[in-house]
Design a protein around this nucleic acid. Sequence first.
DNA 1: CTGTTAGCGCTTTCAA
DNA 2: TTGAAAGCGCTAACAG
Lengths: 326, 326
Amino acid sequence: MVNIKDVAARANVSVGTVSRVLAKNETVGKELRELVEATIRELNFRPNGVARGLRRSRTDMIGLVIPDITNPFFAELAKHVEAIASSAGFSVLLSITNDDPKIELAQIDSLLKSYPTGLIVVPTQFGASKGWSSDVATVAVDRRFTGLPLISVNHYRGAGLAAAHLVALGHERIAYIAGSADAPVSRERRAGFLNTLASAGVRCEAVEGHFDYASGETLGRFLLDRPPHERPTAIATASDQQAIGLLRAASDLDLKVPDDVSIIGFDDIPLANLVTPRLTTISQPVEQIAARAFAAITGADNVPLQDDYLEATLVVRGSTAALLQV
Amino acid sequence: MVNIKDVAARANVSVGTVSRVLAKNETVGKELRELVEATIRELNFRPNGVARGLRRSRTDMIGLVIPDITNPFFAELAKHVEAIASSAGFSVLLSITNDDPKIELAQIDSLLKSYPTGLIVVPTQFGASKGWSSDVATVAVDRRFTGLPLISVNHYRGAGLAAAHLVALGHERIAYIAGSADAPVSRERRAGFLNTLASAGVRCEAVEGHFDYASGETLGRFLLDRPPHERPTAIATASDQQAIGLLRAASDLDLKVPDDVSIIGFDDIPLANLVTPRLTTISQPVEQIAARAFAAITGADNVPLQDDYLEATLVVRGSTAALLQV
DNA sequence: CTGTTAGCGCTTTCAA
DNA sequence: TTGAAAGCGCTAACAG
């Protein structure tokens, strides 16, 4: 491989000069700069990132640690993080924890060997990982990681939006399908939903499951397989995956959505816009989250490393409707 | 940070000795080895991967280049690649190409800066990327990349399995929803399906779209919104996403699956097992593909770097049934 | 504005 | 079996 020395020799300049034109911002005379640039092209010189990393004890990489890349929401997050990082000249190191705190720690440790510029971690669901720290800039996304700044949607307020929407539509027999009560995110969404409902004087039956399709379907069947006057007229879920499972349950019971029952999800994953009917949901500003997280760890725009809550928005599509007056 | 020199000094040995116990396989006297190991723990020494990488001009990383992490099949692939790499002590650098050959080239170039041990690339769908080469071990997965060894399921035979299944079930009015004809993978699956049908003397109406949900729904509606005697009794698709869209179209038209129409997909993504009815499909051995690809680029098990076709398998679930005799 | 040079932390000959 | 020492390719003082 051709290195910086070869370029310097060929262009009759010092390696320092070549290094400076590589750094772009240095003070190099126009003539020399152009000569060096031409030589670089001529020799097809590719700066060695590893050497650079060693010298600066920091590579142009960021670590992305997520529980499950198979989860559409995290996949979406990864996509945006990669896009932003990539366009800023960074590579992304992907680590998957499988929602296991032990693995999470090991993965982070392993990432650190590569001296990344920063770390974006979506902590494990239940892990109250003990105070952990390192000298690389790190943010937690979506879920709290003890001792780290958190960048996340405001789950509580987002869920409140869903509740307000249902109330505005005139629903009074409402049910909520929550995620696991052990997961802080679940608790926040649930509290936001129930408290908003309570403020409006509307009662709610809440059941608890997991964030997945299967859970939505099972609990949906439980809530819907009842006589019409005992059946909720609207159901909110803690995730779109649950809502989609719920859609299936409704369809199996020959219930029309939204005529017989309104359904609202949370996350706005790509599939939400493809199911029938298209799912009304609470949209997380994933791209914005990714951008903030990246800016925070790279220190771009002088973004400080601190908590940052973003607002979710209500996306009304076809799965919710005003309560039919009977 | 504590480095190898600190450890050497503390243990009163040379850095060479420390390096050898790090490498594990070297000939170091038992006493010294244990002393060094203890010192490493005591100082909580973490070898610097970047320095190591520079010296060996190869880091313990592999690059994974995929078109779209949002696609469930690729997400699944990424998951397995990460798991295998991780357990072998490798980190994975993730690059997303968005199915754009230009970006693909740039991304690979960028990855190479980090001197990865190998590259696993799922080429862009339409890209006949011109002969490309580098000195890092590289394999293509799922789709052919000119000049690179390919590790993939046998798309042709896999689709043949689907055709045989439908024929065995007694279907004679069969339709096929293909992916884009510009994509080699689409063409192989289509050919495998149609040729197998032809051998069995069964005719087939083939329509062409894309690999996504929307395409399956649109084309499904086109095929199914007909009088019963003109409607296919079975439809195969080039992807599970299409099949799921198709399921939706059938449901919208009040057609029962599999009673009114049998449906079979391709890929066996996680969602395939969660829809109602559960989707009969052709399963790709994703984990095996990931394992082979990883072994190939790391040279583990003396796996040579060459083409390697794996067999898909038929997974019969609830969306296909024998043709009802009328 | 440009050249020189000392390392970054590690692996790997080469000697002893 | 162990130690000494030469770099891997680059950046960042420092000098001029």
